[in-house]
Amino acid sequence: MTSDFSAGNYRFIPAVFQYSGGVAASPGFEIERVRFDRPVPLAEGFTRFAEYIQAASRPLTSFCACELRSPAAFTDEGFRNFNLHYVRTLAEWGIYDGTTNPVARSNVCPEVDPPAEPSFYAFSFTRPREGAGPSFVIAGSGESQEGNASYAERTVRYRDISPDGIAEKVHYVAGVMERRMGEFGFGWKDATGVQTYTIHDFHHVFAEALVCRGAARSGLTWHFARPPVIDLEYEMDCRRVLRELVI
């Protein structure tokens, strides 16, 4: 079930306080994705988001998705503390109400040349466009199942990085992407971009788990990075965005 965030002109999949499961632009609007040439530290990134969005004559509430890069994977408690800090700006912008967060997000940790501090890689916002077709951004997800248990208790094939373990993780995460797109009535055939985040070889399951189900229709971008929580090994996100640029 999706909810409407009318102040931002998009729908979202309710999830947890730090992010939603995904967003889709409302009729008459499209999502624009803007990537930084180099990751920008958190506070500076929010400032640059605001400047860019306001220059496009859009309210800050139109901010609908972002992609983060962190120095290293967090513990469960460390991740929660980071998220409490992250949502403060969203609350100031009138997006986060203290309970529900409509903004989709990915947060991963580059294995090589990581940033010195949590930084933004990209952001997305909605803007009006006459005759706009559908656009969406699905939040990143690793192989942890939903629930209130610890990550260790709800992670698929926990600490298993054998070929079979990686294969099961890839299958599970691809299924999460499909379910989330399905909430908006979309599927792999609609995606214009798919990203994978792992430091492990998944070639042995690439064709079966991803190509054959249509997940690589527009290719697949592999980032040599870890998911944001210790002992998660594989993450994906996907999107349908027709307007993208680098600044």
Rank of each mutant, 00 (worst) to 15 (best):
A215S: 03
E130P: 08
A104M: 12
T2Y: 08
V211Y: 07
S62V: 08
A72Q: 10
S62E: 15
T2G: 08
S62H: 12
Y172G: 00
S124I: 09
F186R: 05
A73Q: 05
C238T: 00
R11N: 13
F12S: 05
W188E: 04
I166C: 02
N107W: 05
S3T: 12
E51K: 15
A15C: 08
V137L: 07
L42D: 13
S119Q: 05
S144F: 01
S150F: 05
A174S: 02
A15E: 09
V229S: 00
T75E: 07
I95P: 10
F63T: 13
F12V: 08
S218P: 02
L232C: 01
T198E: 03
L68E: 11
F46K: 10
N101H: 14
G182E: 02
H203I: 11
F63V: 11
S218A: 03
A216T: 06
S135Y: 06
V40L: 07
Y197F: 02
S218W: 02
H171R: 06
S124C: 14
E244S: 04
N101A: 11
H85M: 15
F49H: 12
R105V: 11
H85A: 13
S106D: 04
A209Y: 06
I31C: 12
R127E: 15
P71W: 15
E117N: 11
E168N: 06
R58T: 08
P134A: 10
R48Q: 15
Q145P: 03
N83L: 13
A72K: 12
F49L: 10
H200M: 06
F136L: 07
C66H: 13
A24Y: 07
I31Q: 12
G98N: 10
V16P: 04
C64A: 14
P102E: 11
F82C: 14
M177P: 02
R11H: 08
P228T: 03
F125M: 07
E44K: 15
A116E: 15
W222V: 01
P71R: 12
M236F: 00
V173Y: 01
F29G: 10
Y19I: 10
R157H: 06
Y172D: 00
D97M: 10
S141Q: 00
I53W: 08
A43P: 08
R69L: 15
Y86V: 11
E111G: 01
F186A: 09
T198F: 02
P115C: 09
K169D: 00
S119C: 09
Y234F: 02
R33D: 09
S20K: 07
I166Q: 02
Y197H: 00
E67W: 11
